[in-house]
Design a protein around this nucleic acid. Structure first.
Length: 283
DNA sequence: TCACCTTGGTGTCCGTTCGG
DNA sequence: CCGAACGGACACCAAGGTGA
């Protein structure tokens, strides 16, 4: 309920003020700072909101509640304390975890293809725990997943579960994903190889997305990976239906989102590690 | 040991409510 | 009326279990 009347109260002086008269008041500034609810016995302080998007009105001063009988009484929402992040750490994802991420991608895709998507059976509804509003401010450690060097934590350290690797399609990538490790699935359009680098170009409709394998990758991968990408390039030139699925760091280069893959086990072609894939392709 | 499934916590969407 | 916060529903994801 909008409020259009207030009491100006200073020392022993009381005066009824309306939104129409307040700006003309000779002591406008003082009046503005000493406004109270007009309801008998209610001491809630009010503030004046000049005409803006809506017409001028008085509003309840922050955290100044009206008494329960007051016509302007309202219950404030109980809001949980803010989650405050005290620090950010990176945690290296384990091979085991990456594997499970890639396996889950595959399973989900198979389910969708065969239409055996979970039909909603009446799932047990368990109310999610509410944050106790009386509790102290929560402090949490913000954990960022990574597959790169120099992670602060090793996987499973201190019984902290491995951070989530969220799946993205080329279409729904956003700036929020930048510098986070995500999983992506898409068909390979083109392969470029270079001395210390390989680039896969993925395409989904009008979206293109590049996957980079760079120095760190080749420094740590078995020597034959260079050859693998050459072979893959050859195969892709003839056939553009190979599915890439991988986990890596999302970045933006030349105004385009891209992914940096760091390890040989962090990606698959047609659900197989590249070595296996090439073996099967040449057979 | 490995692929697959179930379980339960959590991220996200989106309509509703709140407060101004 | 409007933007922000809320909260229900559900999709997503990690972990752990199971059976071959």
């Amino acid at each position: 309920m909008p409020i259009y009347e207030a009491i100006y109260r200073s020392n022993d002086h009381e005066e009824l003020i309306t939104v129409n008269s307040i700006e003309q008041h000779e002591k406008f500034v003082d009046v503005k700072n000493h406004l109270y609810c007009t309801y008998q016995g209610c001491t809630a302080r009010l503030s004046y909101v000049p005409k803006g998007k809506v017409r001028a009105h008085f509003k309840t001063w922050p955290k100044n509640n009206h008494i329960q009988d007051c016509t302007d009484y309202f219950e404030r929402m109980v809001t949980a304390n803010k989650q405050k992040s005290i620090a950010t750490s990176t945690m290296a994802l384990s091979d085991k975890h990456i594997k499970s991420v890639l396996d889950n991608l595959k399973r989900k895709r198979k389910e969708q293809e065969s239409g055996t998507d979970k039909v909603k059976t009446n799932r047990k509804k368990k109310p999610r725990p509410k944050v106790n509003p009386d509790s102290f401010e929560n402090t949490t450690l913000n954990i960022v997943p990574t597959t790169g060097p120099e992670a602060d934590l090793t996987s499973g350290e201190n019984n902290i579960k491995e951070p989530s690797v969220r799946n993205r399609s080329l279409i729904n990538l956003s700036d929020d994903d930048l510098n986070w490790t995500r999983s992506v699935e898409c068909y390979i359009q083109n392969v470029e190889t270079d001395d210390n680098r390989a680039v896969l170009e993925l395409r989904d409709g009008n979206y293109t997305f590049r996957v980079f394998f760079e120095e760190f990758f080749f420094d740590n991968a078995p020597i034959n990976f260079r050859g693998y990408f050459e072979d893959l390039k050859y195969l892709v030139q003839r056939h553009k239906e190979y599915l890439f699925s991988g986990v890596g760091l999302i970045e933006k280069r030349n105004e385009q989102y891209c992914m940096l893959v760091n390890r040989g086990n962090d990606f698959r072609i047609d659900d197989q590690y590249i070595a296996i894939f090439l073996q099967n392709a040449s057979a």
